[in-house]
């Protein structure tokens, strides 16, 4: 069943696959993000409680969902790497990590910018913001651990173990934080509920979600290509690729 995947354990095939997929990822990013953002900013209705500030939802919610999604993708790559000893899987894992961290940062920042008009303060220890913050720490931990090893094969394995430990913890952290948050509900700040997402808001939201997903896939693919080239620098196929292809055409 999984046999079709096996050739991609070889870096050369994985690199070729990256090159095939990348234009589609970029196309998806451009189409979905621009349609979703324009729809969300211009055409979607305002919320009766939050007025125009609700338009932040079209970047906050997709980035929040996909920051978790990217972490899970990273952990799946780590698991594949540890179980089947695939070097490309570890490379994929470390290619996703910085992208996931940036998306997590976006979720945090947009959450804060939404919180200021709604809650009257930039930061509130709201369940979602708190677990996003912890998620950012987990991403930074994986990236930092990868960085301290000189031997990148060893680094991939070590960071992979940490990513797996983290992914077991992500649901525990999330639910414990939600539970902690309901326990310590602050009385001084009147909390406006996140709006129930109605149909005319749902479509642009879903389109933005797809756009962010394509974005993460595209940037991770570019980073994966770099990672493969860096690790396989002295292989004949890389040498050939560079001398034939030149530099400019391969970059994006």
């Amino acid at each position: 069943m999984w046999k079709w995947l096996h050739p991609y354990a070889k870096t050369e095939n994985a690199y070729a696959l990256c090159n095939t997929l990348l234009p589609w990822f970029w196309a998806g990013t451009c189409v979905f993000l621009s349609v979703g953002v324009v729809w969300g900013l211009v055409f979607a209705p305002q919320d009766y409680q939050q007025f125009e500030s609700v338009r932040i939802i079209y970047i906050h919610v997709p980035s929040a969902i996909l920051s978790m999604g990217a972490y899970v993708a990273m952990a799946v790559a780590a698991l594949v790497g540890i179980v089947w000893q695939w070097r490309t899987a570890f490379m994929t894992m470390i290619a996703i990590a910085p992208v996931g961290a940036v998306v997590t940062f976006v979720a945090l920042f947009t959450g804060a910018a939404w919180g200021k008009p709604m809650w009257g303060t930039w930061w509130i220890w709201d369940a979602r913001l708190t677990s996003e913050l912890i998620l950012l720490f987990l991403y930074i931990g994986v990236i930092a651990l990868y960085g301290v090893f000189d031997d990148k094969q060893q680094a991939g394995k070590a960071a992979g173990v940490m990513a797996l430990v983290g992914v077991v913890n992500v649901p525990i952290i999330h639910y414990s934080v939600v539970w902690w948050n309901t326990l310590h509900q602050g009385a001084s700040i009147s909390k406006v509920d996140k709006p129930d997402v109605a149909d005319p808001m749902l479509w642009p939201l879903l389109i933005c979600l797809a756009g962010f997903a394509f974005f993460i896939a595209a940037v991770s693919t570019v980073r994966l290509k770099s990672e493969i080239v860096r690790r396989e620098m002295h292989r004949p196929w890389v040498q050939k690729l560079v001398s034939n292809d030149g530099v400019s055409s391969d970059a994006i």
């Binding site: 953002v37 900013l41 007025f51 980035s63 976006v106 920042f109 947009t110 910018a113 200021k116 008009p117």
Partner: peptide, 14 residues
């Protein structure tokens, strides 16, 4: 609708 700073800040930083 008066929320220009927050909306554009969020979109800009993103």
């Amino acid at each position: 609708g008066g929320y220009a700073f927050y909306v554009w800040l969020a979109y800009g930083v993103t």
